[in-house]
Amino acid sequence: MSPENAATAAKLNITAGNRSKTVEMIVTGVLIACSLVAILVTVGIVFSLLFESLRFFERVPMSEFLFGTKWSPQTALRADQVAADGAFGAVPLITGTLLISFIAMCVATPLGLFSAIYLSEYASKRTRDWVKPLLEILAGIPTVVYGFFAALVVAPMLRSTGESVGLNVSSESALAAGLIMGVMIIPLISSLSDDVINAVPQSLRDASLGLGSTDSETIRNVILPAAIPGIAGSLLLAASRAIGETMIVVMAAGLAANLTANPLEAVTTITAQIVALLTGDQEFDSAKTLSAFALGLLLFIVTLILNVISLKIVNKYREQYD
């Protein structure tokens, strides 16, 4: 008797397929495990930073770390030399980080935004197809290259320009690092803002143009206000990127922990100090080494907050126009 005869004569078998259930369960299990890796990594980051930071705060009070204005970590020369631990006030690093990021944002915001506006509202499709990937190249260049360029070309250039107008520009000035970092994040801002601007519904544009507004008036009065939340989100993301950027500041900004708002002076940043503390010889238990993890924790928390806020804003914005 053929299978169909059996099937129709008896009951149809709809309770068990021919495939192996165990195999499918294993596959599903593996899939779930892989996606849990993402959580595992986050947990790993939080725990390793937290754990080492707590050990640091056993030696140096948190208040000194957060509010102290002097940063000069020294390793004890002898094991019993507690006092030689140095000063761990992170304020100069925080202000240095903010100063450089601020300069970077001052460069990248106008350039990135205007590029995005031009590309999404004025440029022909052909121009877009060419210019967008070219701009993306800026994002694809490794930061160590930017750092090299900043230290080798831009800093001396600023120094000699400064000299010619009678200004004393440090060879590791915040300005050089900030300018170059700004260039690096232009494509981040332009491509995110481009998406955001493109998401503004055509009907709004038509409404404004239909009233006789020019293109630029439409952009300024209708599109930008509608896109503001999304743009804000992308700026926050760019700021978080600037704060966490490491190689440019390591190579161009140096290690002088000056508490200053003068962009022509040398400052140092959180990331540059982490690198300085953890490269070269280190004993793992010294306050100096542990302080790098406290700085890492600070960096992680700040960038996390910026990222969460910006993702929230951008998602909300997307839903609004979906």
């Binding site: 099937a7 009951k11 149809l12 078998n13 709809i14 309770t15 068990a16 397929g17 495939r19």
Partner: peptide, 19 residues
């Protein structure tokens, strides 16, 4: 289907869709 409840818990949708 042929007297069997297709939403019964023991039913395998994959086998059902074969039929």
């Amino acid at each position: 289907l042929e007297g069997q409840d297709i939403y019964a818990p023991e039913v395998d949708v994959v086998a059902l869709r074969q039929h």
